[in-house]
């Protein structure tokens, strides 16, 4: 496996694996979050969040997830810098829109926007749960006799009280959807899992997945903003 990591394809393979890993995380994250809009009492979401916070498997996965993000971002930066250097003199006129999708040409920008959102997102929620000394500690609620943090109250009050944050979260969902509209099929291509037939299938599943993720995450703040949660 000598110099696998320094080769272009090797880096892309790692990029792809980290991307797939982040995709798996998104599926779990969205499924859980949708509990927010299926139960206005907040009990379902609180049970879900409590389960995630106390489950030993999740405890192990959390640092791996963080590593996944770090690897993805570092490699994305290295690849992007190398790619910019590969064309020291640019074209005076370039009509790229004719031959490649906008998302595929702007993965780094989309990723960067997602990263900015990620920082704000962690500050909004994660900080209050993990480092209550630095944020606002969560209230305690009791569901079926079990004491737990009222994560539902934290999320719903942010969205009910701030149009700005609602819009920010909707925008981030759109960026994530666009990132995935190229990223999904791309990570299969990068590990060589594609041919003439599978490419069409992967592209379609990718578009579908991008829409599910984009709409799925966007719908949550909009639900609270529209007053459906009371």
């Amino acid at each position: 496996m000598s110099n696998f990591l320094t080769s272009s394809i090797g880096k892309k393979v790692i990029m792809s694996i980290s991307g797939l890993f982040l995709i798996a995380f998104l599926i779990v994250h969205l499924s859980l979050n949708l509990l927010l809009i299926f139960d206005n009492s907040g009990e379902l979401f609180n049970i879900g969040a409590h389960f995630m916070a106390t489950n030993p498997i999740i405890k192990v996965v959390e640092p791996v997830l963080a590593l996944g993000f770090v690897v993805h971002i570092i490699l994305a930066t290295i690849l992007t810098i190398q790619n910019m250097k590969a064309r020291p003199v640019g074209y005076a006129r370039s009509e790229q829109s004719n031959n490649a999708s906008w998302a595929s040409r702007n993965m780094f920008i989309l990723g960067g926007l997602i990263l900015i959102f990620l920082v704000i997102h962690l500050y909004n929620f994660w900080l209050n749960i993990k480092l209550p000394e630095l944020g606002t500690p969560l209230e305690i609620t009791t569901v079926d006799g079990v004491e737990m943090e009222n994560a539902y109250l934290m999320v719903s009050s942010l969205f009910k009280n701030s149009v700005f944050f609602c819009m920010l979260y909707v925008l981030a969902a759109i960026f994530l959807g666009l990132h995935l509209s190229h990223g999904f099929w791309s990570c299969f291509q990068s590990v060589g899992f594609s041919n003439k037939i599978w490419r069409k299938r992967l592209e379609w599943v990718g578009y579908l997945f991008a829409i599910v993720i984009g709409v799925g995450f966007a719908i949550i703040p909009l639900y609270f903003l529209a007053g459906f949660a009371g």
Partner: peptide
């Protein structure tokens, strides 16, 4: 061939598909 391609300073493929359409 991949090692030579990297050494010569060509960039990394990001699967945009522009090559195939041109």
């Amino acid at each position: 061939m991949v090692a030579k391609m990297d050494e010569l300073g060509f960039g990394n493929c990001t699967n945009t598909g522009a090559c195939e359409s041109e």
